[in-house]
Design a protein around this nucleic acid. Structure first.
Lengths: 390, 390
DNA sequence: CGACAAGCCGGAAACGTTTCCAGTGCAGGC
DNA sequence: GCCTGCACTGGAAACGTTTCCGGCTTGTCG
């Protein structure tokens, strides 16, 4: 709790000027001898540069904000981790902010950026309108948008082709012989909701001959499990006579809701009704039945966004870029009961795919052998074309 | 992207001095007329005070760090949300930091606090040793510890009685007639691991007559699902002749791993083996079977920690306090197949217990009725029995 | 009518850092 | 021997804000 040591004190102790001391510690152009002297003094006093003073002078805070509607969704947690992993080694701290799910509250957040406490903003807006685009365009700090191309606004962005992604899910269901496919979507006025609806419609049209128009969509109030249960009940109730044999959900959380609703009717997944999700989240992998899901590369999107951010944060003149991350389908038990679950393959070999944290101590010695076929994160490496199915 | 407007510019525009301008905007002692004039100028220029300049002058950053071993665990996400909800209205931003799971990396993090970019630190260390306690004690900013009383170090802390908590789980299993109860713990050198082991041992001793010593414990490498599966396999394998009829896990994630391992053997949950978890996380509530779990009041702990932090952040002289949050058992399907799941009660009445984010728009009108027995956060109220931990 | 207080304002200092600029000392080249 | 250039150093300014302090005006009370 003792008050912090300042550079001036180090300078005094080292018998050097403030300027030289600063140079010796962080800059260049100091004699080796001076560096040595100052280092010693600094160590002795336990000096650590004050982030605020430095920020004021340099005009940079080394903080990046990541703003998201609801951190409760595991997909955002995964993004956050990935962002942190890229930013941290570069000396940036990551701030998590909550936008709320309306467009106006997101606008407020973007505007608050001119508080200047942050060098950049990575935002994944749920709902986007012109006013938000405008606010982003004239934000006083660089912005990177996840989820929707911002080319026209001259802002860097990372997007996925979730429309095609859901197409893969529908084709997969079709390949399995399912013909009465329902779509469980989130609110249509959200960016993902709208895009995924288009994707489903396109896929349904493409397969219209086989499906005979037997497709139906239902919209949940929210991209959450509870909203999913409620909406899935409605969806299923509409097809009581000729039962649906598959539900494609716009989200892993909705998918889990759907599974629950299916089971309430005494039906089985995937026996009676096959279910697919989107996002390939941890919760879906762990659920029983494990969830067949379209990976939109959450971690990869996070990493890409963080890298784009570094580009513009380090060099304001750097032109905006648009990055697209591929999608891929991970087939699991919720559509194919026989799908081997890479998560829990061989007894004793369950190295967590996402290597939670630093290795650390603890009895991990038994992993020393030639770890066989570590279950790679489904869509992690060279599969961004989303082949995979079947 | 235009460069930001400064207070000096506002002052010029308003034809007032820098001092008066500052007072008019944020301080007191300015004439109403002056306030009006300055306000107008500020609005005209879209002025917003620079956080850095202010921080430097005031010696406060209005940022609080929340540090945690692994943000992948949903219980930490819940805490984070709760902390944010308390801090945000008070004008503080929340930074999420990752400690890694070793004690030394946590020490590094605590030491980094004298970078001065933050007014306080809320930390939930996984492993704690004397050096960490020492580092926390002499941190240059106030620290609040979640998970372990820090009374002796003169540091505020929030803890739960997880030892009793697990006792409740064991007694619950016993009440259900289960007699061969296994304990699936996380690493014993972690704080929760050690405490929960003691709790289980005590409960087992208490019921020893009935259980006839038929208790066994197994330790997972980690508090994760995958580690849980592996360890649960070992645990179950040890009791092949006389099968376990219940597993109490130290964690919801471990419990889910246990369920998976049980089912691998062709056994059912809870029919053959009942399973309980700890933390009462969203993932456990949503899982099928939904997970009977001991709530340690994650949200409440987060809120309490945030409030303690506000106390000391606003007044450095404020004495350290210890708060204890109660625990409670939520019985669900993983022990009692008939347990009504409040999460998905009546069709159309699925109000999520934790009201994810701001109400926002959307058709939520059907929630207007006398919301039926909203599953209140188990141990939310009478908690601040903050008298020192014995 | 004078003295005093209260209310308000502006100048200036301060927070801790980096960096520009001028100055010093020294070596080397002519 | 003198000048040029290099390597390094220290003084001072600057980043944007809040706040202390002294001074001015105005109002009130004696």
């Amino acid at each position: 709790m003792s008050s912090r040591t300042t550079l001036t004190q180090v300078a005094e102790r080292a018998g050097a000027s403030l300027a030289s001391t600063s140079r010796a510690l962080h800059g260049s152009g100091a004699s080796p001898e001076m560096v040595e002297r100052v280092r010693a003094a600094a160590a002795e006093l336990g000096y650590r540069a004050d982030a605020i003073g430095r920020s004021l002078r340099m005009g940079r805070t080394f903080q990046i904000a990541f703003a998201v509607a609801d951190i409760g969704n595991p997909v955002y947690v995964e993004m956050m981790r990935a962002i942190h992993e890229v930013l941290d080694p570069e000396g940036y701290r990551t701030l998590v902010m909550t936008t709320g799910d309306s467009s106006t509250s997101t606008i407020d957040l973007v505007r608050s950026m001119n508080g200047g406490f942050v060098d950049g903003l990575i935002v994944s807006p749920l709902r986007t309108d012109d006013r938000l685009v405008e606010a982003i365009r004239e934000a006083p700090v660089p912005v990177v948008v996840i989820g929707r191309s911002m080319a026209e606004a001259g802002v860097s962005s990372v997007s996925t082709d979730s429309a095609t992604g859901i197409g893969a899910a529908v084709r997969h269901l079709h390949d399995l012989g399912r013909r009465r496919i329902g779509f469980l979507n989130g609110p249509l006025d959200t960016t993902p909701g709208a895009v995924r609806q288009r994707g489903f419609d396109a896929a349904a049209a493409e397969l219209a001959d086989d499906l005979g128009g037997a497709t139906d969509a239902e919209v949940a109030d929210d991209f959450t499990v509870t909203a999913g249960v409620v909406a899935a009940r409605r969806l299923l109730a509409r097809h009581r006579t000729e039962r649906l044999d598959a539900i494609a959900a716009a989200n892993d959380l909705l998918a889990i809701g759907a599974i629950r609703a299916v089971r309430e009717l005494g039906l089985s997944v995937p026996g009676d009704v096959a279910v697919t999700g989107i996002d390939d989240t941890e919760i879906g992998r762990v659920f029983q039945p494990s969830l067949t899901s379209v990976s939109l590369g959450a971690a990869e999107r996070g990493r890409a966004a963080a890298r784009l951010m570094l580009e513009v944060a380090e060099d304001p003149e750097h032109p905006a870029r648009q990055v697209t991350v591929g999608s891929s389908l991970a087939v699991r038990e919720s559509t194919d009961p026989a799908a081997a679950d890479p998560y829990f393959l061989a007894p004793g070999e369950a190295a967590a795919p996402d290597a939670p944290v630093s290795g650390g101590p603890g009895p991990a010695g038994d992993r020393s052998g030639p770890a066989p076929a570590r279950p790679d994160t489904p869509a992690s490496r060279g599969d961004s074309t989303g082949g995979g199915a079947r």
